[in-house]
Amino acid sequence: MRRIKEMVIEKALLSSALITIAVTVGIILVLSIEAIAFFSEVSIIDFFTDTQWTPLFADKHFGILPLLSGTLLTSFIAIAFAVPVGLSISIYISEYAPKSFRRTVKPALELLAAVPTVVYGFFALTVVTPFLQSFIPGLSGFNALSAGLVMGIMIIPFISSLSEDALHAVPHSLREAAYGMGSTKLQNAFKVMVPAASSGIIVSIILAISRAIGETMIVAIAAGQQPRLTLDPTVPVETITAYIVQVSLGDVQHGSLEYRTIFAAGITLFVFTFLLNTISYRIRKRFQEKYE
């Protein structure tokens, strides 16, 4: 009886694992088939070198670079804002604050990640942009800057929470060693704790980057919908994700070339996040080997 039960449970677990794999494979398959169909009509060289993205206009160009630059620009702003803030928070919570602070503030911070991104998008558009316009006169109503900053706020808890977990997981004996050697709190934090937790911290940052690159609503609402190859954060740009939303919501014909552009854009996005996840996996493994 017991053995049958164990076998049933084992099979159930196995099948849920298989289902996950199957879904992933299915997604990659659909993406690839549509993307291949797209690239049979558009040269892959044009795709990566053309500096315009105008598939919905009469004069069609299929250069992904403007969307890519929009994605990277907003993500860069978000990361540049969220990494220092998120890391400071995690170090403060794990090395400075009383334990009671950790218990209350950490869950509160994690709530930031639970706010619907649509809310963040409108916050960027209706609060942050007007605020920034008061001292950046040339700032457009839609721009990469406020979308990036608000996206940064959204991903702070990813960094602060995961980094804090990594810092918290450093054995207490190392903290004692650091203080026993006469370290100040600051030296303990930056010379011992952060290096000891570095793999976890780096992984948290990579996951946050991956989250920023894939983020859709905030940029679709606040960054604009004008594909433009630029690094200027004050003008409207369009990200890969925002473009996919725009087309999905529009009235393009299923199966048309315009329709297939979203798969080409999607697979580009997928390759990016896949690479990031692979890197974070590698880092985790390498540090494990080094420190265990």
Binding site: E176, A177, M181, G182, A196
Partner: peptide, 29 residues
């Protein structure tokens, strides 16, 4: 005070750094 009064703990607790960095740590800080 702690530089004057050193401590050795029950479980060896070297820093996850090189041998050199471990010994040099107290001087470097």
């Amino acid at each position: 005070l702690r530089k004057q009064v050193g401590m050795v703990f029950q479980k060896p607790n070297p820093f996850p750094k090189s041998i050199f960095e471990n010994v040099a740590y107290g001087l470097k800080i």
